[in-house]
């Protein structure tokens, strides 16, 4: 009868009947777009090799995810179109030296997607940032190739074998100088200008802080990243390194240098802000970011590696459930202005 009254079979669902335009795919592809300046700068400095490294990491990540979804999860659909595997691949590529052997990169992608992401159930379920897990795995498995840095911009665009010439990273130089004092390496250290604009040794994504910040600001403008989170990460890093510098400027380099050098920018704008592996409330995210920054500073100053960004974020990822339990958003009707009622 009701069919006769309406004339057709209508859809029934609970309200709301409106949906925001923002989808997971839109978020992920926006991140891909935000990584484009870094990609271009990487190619500018490391030539065709950087492009191939990026494409390999992205391709391997996408293929691994697709295979797992289709043949391990036995689903008819695939999840690679949401772009999250592309993001993971790009971040992995920007966290390795441009001269990395491609097969090692593929192994890293398999670990990143297969172990760190899909083994936990796919997007949203991974406790650790997949790209960083992949990088950490590569760093312990292929320590030499992972720390052989080609000199940026020193070779032609089409040069394939970058590993012939190697350069130390700024942070590596600082670390090496150690107790001997910074004066020993002072003439080798790149200027702040090069750090900001590019042209320094390191991973592909570490080449230019400016490119990373541009992408980050795009995400802030889109509303996918709260601006305060990356700033707090950098502030945490600056605080620790700043205290050390204030105590002994002869041994430790100043905090601005720490913030601009290495993967700090990439970590602050693209990895601390990773939605899945950071806490849910804004206060939680802020404390999370600041703590990770402090940790990164401590690792850089006192740890065995010159770089501490990846490990600082991975360690904090493990603490996310604790953050979620303790940092809750402010509930309406429980505050002081609500008359203290429970």
């Amino acid at each position: 009868m009701s069919t006769q009254a309406t004339g057709r079979s209508l859809v029934v669902a609970l309200p709301p009947h409106e949906r925001s335009e923002v989808s997971v795919a839109r978020i992920m592809w926006s991140v891909v777009l935000a990584l484009m300046p870094t990609t271009l700068v990487g190619i500018w400095f490391y030539g065709i090799r950087a492009a191939v490294v990026t494409l390999t990491a992205v391709g391997a990540s996408v293929v691994v995810e697709h295979v797992i979804v289709r043949y391990f999860f036995r689903r008819d659909t695939t999840t690679v179109t949401d772009g999250s595997a592309v993001v993971t691949g790009m971040l992995l590529a920007y966290n390795v030296p441009a001269g990395i052997p491609l097969w090692q990169l593929v192994v890293g992608a398999v670990v990143a997607i297969g172990v760190a992401k899909m083994a936990f159930g796919g997007i949203g379920n991974n406790p650790f940032n997949p790209a960083l897990v992949g990088r950490a795995f590569m760093l312990v498995s292929f320590p030499v190739d992972m720390t052989t840095w080609p000199v940026p911009g020193s070779q032609g665009f089409a040069t394939w074998n970058l590993d012939a010439v190697t350069a130390a990273t700024p942070l590596g130089l600082v670390k090496e100088a150690g107790a001997g004092g910074l004066s020993a390496v002072a003439d080798q250290l790149p200027s702040y200008g090069s750090l900001f604009l590019g042209n320094i040794g390191g991973c592909i994504g570490e080449a230019s802080a400016l490119a990373v910040v541009l992408g980050g600001l795009y995400l802030v403008w889109k509303g996918f990243v709260p601006w305060v989170v990356p700033l707090l990460y950098l502030a945490g890093l600056g605080l620790v390194t700043g205290i050390a510098w204030a105590i002994d400027p002869g041994t430790y380099i100043d905090p601005l240098y720490h913030i601009l050098a290495g993967g700090a920018m990439l970590g602050a704008w693209f990895m601390v802000t990773d939605m899945t592996t950071s806490p849910m409330s804004l206060t939680g995210r802020m404390v999370f970011a600041a703590s990770a920054g402090l940790l990164a500073g401590i690792i850089r100053l006192f740890g065995g590696y010159p770089e501490g960004v990846s490990y600082s974020i991975l360690i904090m990822n493990a603490l996310v459930p604790v953050f979620d339990r303790h940092f809750k958003p402010r509930k309406f009707g429980y505050g002081a202005s609500a008359g203290g009622a429970a």
Partner: peptide, 11 residues
């Protein structure tokens, strides 16, 4: 899809 913990609902 899976919850990606983006916290847009919380916001």
């Amino acid at each position: 899809g899976n919850c990606i913990r983006c916290s847009r609902c919380v916001g």
